[in-house]
């Protein structure tokens, strides 16, 4: 059995941000306050470890908004289960990042 990847606090923060619906890089940067040089390489490693997956936005949606298409990320099943275990290691993680629903309220 492959050992479970060990997440640093930064990686856990990014995973939590994606889990909360911040699904593209700049949005994750804004909510975590991390620089681009940290967020994008970290997301690539998370994707390499199959904790998140990416999908390109439909061109028609991007065209309608007159902007280039974005790449959206979402948690995989293993990413979600790892995040659950990470909450035990970083108990404040859930409180650090508010969910978009809470923000709107």
């Amino acid at each position: 059995m492959q050992p479970e990847p060990k997440l640093s606090h930064t990686a856990a923060l990014i995973l939590q941000a994606i889990h909360l619906g911040h699904v593209y890089g700049f949005s994750v940067m804004e909510v975590t306050g991390l620089p681009s040089g940290t967020v994008y390489p970290a997301m690539r490693r998370l994707e390499r470890d199959a904790l998140i997956t990416s999908k390109w936005e439909q061109q028609s949606i991007a065209d309608a908004e007159q902007r280039p298409p974005r790449k959206y990320y979402k948690l995989t099943r293993s990413g979600r289960s790892l995040l659950e275990s990470v909450y035990k290691r970083y108990p404040l993680l859930e409180k650090l990042l508010p969910s978009p629903a809470v923000e709107k309220a």
Partner: peptide, 15 residues
């Protein structure tokens, strides 16, 4: 964009 350099470099070296 300055962060793109780190991302690109890590991508080249396989992370």
């Amino acid at each position: 964009t300055s962060g793109a350099f780190k991302d690109a470099y890590l991508l080249r070296t396989g992370g």
